[in-house]
Every structure is written in C-alpha cells, then in structure tokens.
Write a protein that binds this DNA or RNA. Sequence first.
DNA 1: CGCTTCTTTCACTATTTTCTGAATTGTGTA
DNA 2: TACACAATTCAGAAAATAGTGAAAGAAGCG
Lengths: 160, 160
Amino acid sequence: MPRDAAEKYVERMGAALTSAGLARLPSRVFAALTVDPDGRMTSAELVETLGVSPAAVSGAIGSLSQIGFVHRERERGSRRDIYVVDDDAWHRAMMQHDATYAPMLAALDDAIDVLPPGTPEHRRLFVMREFLRFVGTELDAIGERWAVRLAEIDAGLTRS
Amino acid sequence: MPRDAAEKYVERMGAALTSAGLARLPSRVFAALTVDPDGRMTSAELVETLGVSPAAVSGAIGSLSQIGFVHRERERGSRRDIYVVDDDAWHRAMMQHDATYAPMLAALDDAIDVLPPGTPEHRRLFVMREFLRFVGTELDAIGERWAVRLAEIDAGLTRS
DNA sequence: CGCTTCTTTCACTATTTTCTGAATTGTGTA
DNA sequence: TACACAATTCAGAAAATAGTGAAAGAAGCG
C-alpha cells in the first residue's frame, strides 16, 4: 500500500473513532496498527508514523490495552515492547457494554426505588432501565452470532 | 420524589452519559428531563435546576435536538420554549448508528480498494468492515424487537 | 554490577472544550 | 410600529485534556 494512502486511512479512521468517543491518540494508534501488515508495531514505529512523543504512545497504549484493543508482547532477548492489535478487538469492545451501562443502571435503580410508582417519571425511568437491560442482552447475542459469521468469512477467505 | 434524590439522580446519570460520550451539559439536561414528571421543562427551569446560564442551556438543547433526544415545543401565545424528552429517545439514538459507522466504513472502503488483496492487512480491514456492517444490520433488528418489547411493557404497566 | 536501551512517570505547556455575559435577533402583544 | 420578553450568538474567561521533555525506572547483556 502506498505510504500516503496508509497515512490517509490512519487519519480518517482515527478521526472517526475519535468522534465515536475514543480519545484522539489511542484512536490513531489503533488505526495505525490495523493497517500494519502484521498488526504489530514497536513504540519507535508508532512515534515515527504518528509524529508524537514516546511518552504519548505509552499513554495511548495504556488506555488501549485497558479496554482490550491491544496487548503488549516482547520478544525474548529484546527490550522493546511490541504492541499488537487483538484480532477480536471489536468483538471484545462490544462485549464491554457493561462498563458503559452499569453506572446508568445503578442510577436508575436508585431513582426507581425512591420514586412513587404509578407516576409518569417512575414509568419513564422504568422503561429506560428495561431498554438498557434489553440492549445489553441483545448485544451479547450479537456477539455470539458474530463469532459464527466470522468463521464463515474465514472459511470463504481461506478457500479463495 | 425528594428534591435532593432527584438531584443526585441527575448528577449520576449525567456523569454516566458523559463518560459514554455525550457532552457534559447535554447529559445533565437530558437526565433532568427524564425525571421531570411530564418530561417537559422551560429554559428557566433548567437554568434553575442545573445552575448554568441560559446560553449554556440553549447550546445543550441544540445538540440534544440534533441527535433527536429532545424537541422544542411552544404553547401558543407564549414566547417561551418548552423542551420535551422524546419518549423513544434511546431507540432513536440506537438507530442512529449510521452516523457513527459511516465515516469508518468510508475510510475502510477506500483502504480496502487500494490494498493488495490477499495480504494480512487487507484481510484485517475486510473483516473489520464486515463486522461494522454486521453490527449495523443487527442494531436495526434490535430496534424492531424493542418496539415489540415496549408494547408488552406498556400493556403490563397499564394493566397493573 | 554497570552499561545500554527502552518504557514509564511526572511536572509543565499548549490546545481544546465548556460555559458565561453582553449584545443581537426573534416572537408575540398592544 | 413600538414594546416586552425569551432565545440565540459570539467573544472571551475558566477549566479540563492531551501531549512534551526530562528524569526515573525496568530489563537485557557484557
């Protein structure tokens, strides 16, 4: 792939991820890793590719690995870390909806407890809670269906 | 509901929404509207409840209405707007996944075009694109199932 | 050990974001 | 039209965030 086409992809995908809520540098790092042939890059490579300091890369990798998009590896006898995109990063991210919803559900639980039942606001929050629970279980189901789908895709790509 | 219980809910839910990616004040405004008995508040009420300026409320309502969480109404013969939570705000938000995914898909399309097929990076981006498409259609399906589910819940709440 | 190489932490700066206050525009009443 | 009141816009202040550079901290190897 032409170098500047890759760069363009990194910036576009980075921006898209950023506006989807992921912090800026983590977004760009993730994007860069996804176009890398083996999905493995050192800190130095990321510094070079993205034009930021090693410190910034370190921070970005920290947050990416916390949310399970990336993990650290190190070849024996080397002292440089290699950062690797997890193949199931997206799948994993989707399964992590609990982290997002749990605080909302907690707030709703408490409010619903206190509100007099039968009032419109009680009903509204009750329905909201049902929605979040519903979506949570549905997302888990999607995750499972994706596993199946992925296997099919793999089969297709391998065959061809 | 005790006033400070409501306040606590507003702040907790607001914070949860914020960390889910919605801007701060819009998050708090939305939360405040959801506990309001009729889900309808004027600018002055929001200013009072949240302790911010009218200008800030105006901005927050702007972004909330853009994403379809809230809409403006006005009683005839009045010159003050009333802001109303849309009952299907969540549903609507979920259906809006296109806005989030489209830029990513666009970036992927271009990159996939340029990458030599058969390479690992081509495969990785290809799979990513499949994932996003898959999730998009699945979310639409969830939306439909939620409509059904909501009807059931309504039936249940009405009966009791 | 001590030297080298890389990563991480921390204090600081630059940038961005968020909100305010003042001025402006819009909307309804007389 | 003029008047009154509410919403909005905009320039700027304040606060939060992201990223830098320097120093400290691992980890390998002689």
